[in-house]
Design a protein around this nucleic acid. Structure first.
Lengths: 237, 237
DNA sequence: GAATACTGACTGACTGGTCAGTCATTTATA
DNA sequence: TATAAATGACTGACCAGTCAGTCAGTATTC
């Protein structure tokens, strides 16, 4: 111990710090002042939290969970490592919170869309658009990839993801397919496998991470082709 | 972590490692009878190598690359850790060799199948069958999963996999689709996205690792539904 | 208004544990 | 006996998580 870096200089630091008058404030009602100070503190806290999450996203998606060093996350967020532990219990919690923060907002969007009772052709176009714009072309793509690549080793996170995100999306898809099947827009068996609708999106995410450099993939075109395929398979009444 | 290594007491069965025939699951066809001492030695070497690969497969697919300890691989193969280094340069090489050994044999099968000039309906059934029997219901499923989950952090392995495996499969698929499109069995645009054909298979592999326990998935039925979808989308002449 | 006391967010050196890879020694084989 | 194969204790690097200490900002006192 006793390795404090101020050891050499005789305690000048303290006095100087104290002497700093810190620009005089006009007198203010105590309550207001306290409240605003409180708010400012809370705001700074949230800001810090965000900075950590942002840095964590960067590191986790570049290196994966195990290989990510919290030292690097801290450096990227321009804070000390210890600070991370003021906001998150441990590395795994940080990871889980990251996934929650990024993917939870999607659910509402998808469910709202799925509730609209419009022809599948229209709905499908909208879904593709949302997927490309809100997932594939954003950081959410990396989070989905993280879920795919790391989920197996974190059963709790996989469960959370299934419960809070995936089951809702699958449910919405099933509802859409059920209505579409009733209208004869789609074969009835498809209702049992909403995964088929989503599959090309996931494959695109995997492909982009592994093989894009060897063989680029036009996601939007692929999704459109897939949608056309599904729509063309309707019963010819 | 599960600690299976409690053999601290007098037990110490050491030479038993050699005596133990160590199960029959071979990654490679059984060697022909050794004609000479040289051959016998070489055969034993290959056997050891196989034992290591088998153990590595088990550990890697249970824990992922980073979290796998070579001590555990050695224990499972009933050899000392140092022995691994007599057969593989390092952990990464072991991983790469594992992927090579498991997936390379598939390529020939797929390519041979793709060369047959038969109606898509027949071919597709065969492909689904091969996928289910040779991949989904075997350890190869785990290797494909490993490729998906770890590939990003091992660009060399991803490149090897693309070059030696994936590009051949994609190529075969494209050839199949081209002929099918020429016959009007399938929309022409599909030729640009053979990934669409494979997508449900990959999604099934991911699903089985992450969400099977919440919501089981009948792969075979899903694949059949998907094939039916593709076939139903043909131009109605 | 200035001096003093207090608070808690933040820091980063340190600890304890882990594990890939090495190599001197032991064991098996020719 | 000579050579090859196998062993496992050891080393050095690495890193999650801790905690004693710091200091800017806030409250209190005169």
């Amino acid at each position: 111990m006793a390795k404090s870096r101020t050891a050499s200089a005789q305690g000048r630091a303290k006095v100087t710090a104290m002497a700093k008058p810190r620009g005089g404030n006009a007198l203010r009602p105590l309550a207001t002042k306290a409240a605003s100070a409180q708010d400012a503190r809370k705001a700074r806290g949230l800001e810090r939290r965000d900075a950590i999450l942002t840095a964590a996203l960067e590191e986790f998606s570049a290196r994966g969970f195990e290989a990510t060093r919290l030292d690097d996350v801290a450096a990227r967020a321009r804070i000390a490592k210890g600070t991370i532990y003021l906001y998150f219990r441990d590395k795994e919690t940080l990871f889980q919170e990251l996934i929650r923060a990024m993917l939870t907002p999607l659910v509402g969007t998808i469910e709202a869309l799925g509730a609209a009772d419009v022809p599948l052709a229209v709905l499908a176009d909208r879904l593709v658009d949302i997927f490309v714009r809100e997932v594939y072309e954003t950081r959410r793509k990396d989070v989905v990839r993280l879920m795919i690549t790391e989920g197996r080793r974190f059963p709790k996170i996989a469960e959370f993801y299934y419960r809070e995100v995936l089951s809702h999306i699958i449910g919405a898809m099933r509802a859409i397919l059920r209505r579409a099947a009733a209208r004869g827009e789609v074969p009835a068996e498809l209702v049992d496998f909403p995964q088929i609708l989503v599959a090309p999106g996931l494959v695109a995410i995997i492909w982009s991470g592994l093989f894009e450099r060897f063989e680029p993939l036009d996601v939007r075109a692929m999704m459109k082709t897939h949608v056309a395929l599904v729509l063309a398979a309707r019963k010819k009444a």
